Simulated scan of single mutants.
Amino acid sequence: MSEQNRITIDVVSDVVCPWCFLGMKRLENALASLPDIKAEVHWRPFQLDPTIPPEGKERKAYMLAKFSDENRLKQVHANLVSLGAVEGISFDFDAITVAPNTLDAHRLIRWAAASGDGVQDKLARLLFSLYFEQGKNIGDHAVLVEAAREAGMDTAVVESLLATDADRDDVTNEIVTASRMGITGVPCFLLDGKYAVMGAQDSATLADAIRQVAAEKAAGEPTLN
C-alpha cells in the first residue's frame, strides 16, 4: 500500500459524549468500507465540562440542571437509544449514576497510544461502553485500571501514574489547543491535520471525506481547509 493511501485521523472527543460514541462506530463503518485506505487513528482529548469535580456529580440532577425539562431529557435519550441501536450501541442512560470528570480517562487514553498498535482504539471503545452501556463511573481509578487491563496495558504502571499528576498539563493543553482551533463541539474528525469533519456524521459522509482526502493526497494536490 502506497503512502498516498495512508491518512491520519485525529478524533477529538470526550468519553462522556454520546455523539462521540456514535461517531466512533460510524468511523469504524466508514473505514471498513474503504479497504484500500489505511487510516491511522489517534484519539485526542476534549472535556464537555471540565468544572465537574474529581469525584463527579450525581448524574440525574446534573442532567436536569442542564436541560431544565425532564421530558426533553427523556426525548433526547430516546433519540440516542434509537440511533445507537442502528450502530450496535445499547445505550442505558438509566444505569448511569455519576457524571464524571474525564481528565483521568483522557490521561489513560494518552498513555494507551504508547502501549502498542490498536490499544488506544480498544481502550476508547471500552470506556465508551463502560459508561454508556454499563453505567460505570469512568472517573473512578479502579474502573480505569480495569479498562487498561482489558485493553492490554500494564496495569501496575497505569495505577502508579494515575496516583500522580503525570501528563495532566499536557492533556489540558491539548484541550486548550483544540478550542483555539475553533473546535467547540465534539466529535471532530481531523483528516491528515488539514480537513475537519464536525459532528457525528453518518458513515457514508465520513467515508466520502476520507476518500476525498486520500485521492487528493495521491494526486499531490493540497487538501481543502
Score class of each variant (00 low, 15 high):
residue 134 Q to P: 05
residue 142 A to E: 14
residue 66 K to N: 14
residue 117 D to F: 11
residue 166 A to F: 12
residue 2 S to Y: 08
residue 46 F to R: 06
residue 182 G to E: 06
residue 122 K to Q: 04
residue 70 E to A: 13
residue 116 G to Y: 08
residue 55 E to S: 08
residue 50 P to W: 11
residue 115 S to Y: 08
residue 217 K to I: 04
residue 50 P to H: 09
residue 171 V to R: 11
residue 40 E to Q: 00
residue 121 D to R: 12
residue 57 K to R: 11
residue 32 A to Y: 08
residue 86 V to F: 13
residue 118 G to D: 11
residue 197 V to A: 13
residue 98 V to W: 08
residue 148 A to E: 02
residue 24 M to P: 05
residue 59 R to K: 08
residue 34 L to I: 01
residue 105 A to Q: 03
residue 1 M to H: 14
residue 204 A to P: 07
residue 50 P to I: 03
residue 214 A to F: 03
residue 51 T to H: 06
residue 171 V to K: 12
residue 220 G to N: 01
residue 123 L to Y: 00
residue 22 L to C: 06
residue 109 I to M: 12
residue 46 F to P: 07
residue 30 A to W: 03
residue 150 E to P: 06
residue 187 P to F: 10
residue 33 S to L: 00
residue 8 T to I: 15
residue 220 G to C: 01
residue 225 N to L: 13
residue 130 L to Q: 06
residue 120 Q to Y: 05
residue 57 K to F: 02
residue 207 A to E: 01
residue 223 T to G: 12
residue 39 A to K: 04
residue 48 L to M: 04
residue 49 D to W: 01
residue 161 L to K: 14
residue 137 N to Y: 12
residue 138 I to F: 08
residue 205 T to L: 06
residue 210 I to V: 00
residue 33 S to I: 03
residue 127 L to F: 11
residue 122 K to H: 10
residue 209 A to R: 09
residue 121 D to T: 09
residue 28 E to Y: 04
residue 118 G to S: 11
residue 139 G to Q: 05
residue 44 R to Q: 12
residue 132 F to A: 12
residue 36 D to N: 14
residue 88 G to N: 08
residue 60 K to I: 01
residue 189 F to L: 02
residue 87 E to H: 08
